[in-house]
Amino acid sequence: MTGGGGDGGGQGGGDPFAFLPRDPSPLPQNSEGHWELCPVDAVPEDGARGFVLDDAGVRLGVVVVNRGGRLFGYVNSCPHLNIPLNLWPDKFLSPDGQVLQCATHGARFRIEDGLCIAGPCEGRFLTSFRLVVKNRKIVALEP
């Protein structure tokens, strides 16, 4: 096992994304250095989906939000403690669906720009992740 795993917890410089499922495998970069995430219609309107990318051997969580047909991408890491926003697959939005919400401490982020508008990291931003649509598929570029 790599990365010091085991059942002793994640003390010290451990990977904050270590609990993310290992299967399916993280999405690899294509020959252009980008990641093909999914067909556009696989992220429902006013919904969100999470992905795990392989960035040169490092696992990177990404969340894609579809707000009224516009796509927004962010690194799946709350700036408060640098832990994933979600505890359950694809559960990123507040109950009313209006903002991204960290499941651990309730920080709330505007979908349009990732600004934290409430919670322990108020005033800080999620790290954006550039997205494009090519051939009806969502493609993630380097953040």
Rank of each mutant, 00 (worst) to 15 (best):
G50M: 10
V52L: 13
L53W: 12
L53N: 08
L53D: 03
D54E: 05
D54F: 06
D54S: 09
D55N: 10
A56Q: 15
A56S: 14
G57K: 11
G57T: 11
G57R: 12
V58G: 09
R59Y: 02
R59C: 08
L60Y: 03
L60H: 13
G61C: 06
G61H: 05
G61P: 14
V62K: 12
V62A: 13
V63P: 14
V64D: 14
V64L: 10
V64Y: 11
V65G: 13
V65H: 08
V65S: 10
N66C: 07
N66Q: 08
R67E: 14
R67V: 02
G69T: 01
G69R: 05
G69Y: 06
R70T: 14
L71T: 01
L71G: 09
F72C: 03
F72T: 00
F72Y: 15
Y74T: 00
V75F: 00
V75N: 01
V75Q: 05
N76L: 01
N76D: 15
S77W: 00
C78I: 02
P79S: 06
H80C: 04
H80A: 04
H80W: 02
H80R: 03
N82D: 08
N82K: 03
I83S: 07
I83P: 02
I83L: 15
I83N: 04
P84G: 05
P84E: 02
P84H: 08
L85Q: 08
L85R: 06
L85K: 07
N86Y: 01
N86T: 02
N86Q: 13
L87H: 15
L87V: 06
L87I: 09
W88N: 14
W88F: 12
W88K: 14
W88A: 12
W88R: 15
W88M: 11
D90V: 11
K91W: 10
K91H: 14
F92V: 01
F92L: 03
F92S: 07
L93W: 02
L93Q: 08
L93I: 03
S94Y: 12
S94V: 02
P95M: 02
P95T: 05
D96E: 15
D96C: 06
D96A: 05
D96K: 01
Q98D: 15
Q98C: 07
Q98W: 03
V99L: 12
V99H: 13
V99G: 00
V99D: 14
L100C: 05
L100H: 03
L100Q: 09
L100Y: 07
Q101F: 01
Q101I: 00
C102V: 00
T104I: 05
T104E: 12
T104D: 12
T104G: 05
G106I: 01
G106C: 07
A107N: 04
F109G: 04
F109I: 00
R110T: 15
R110L: 15
R110F: 02
I111H: 08
I111W: 09
I111L: 14
I111R: 11
I111C: 09
E112F: 02
D113P: 11
D113Q: 08
D113I: 03
D113M: 09
G114M: 09
G114Y: 06
C116V: 03
C116P: 13
I117A: 07
I117C: 09
I117H: 07
I117D: 10
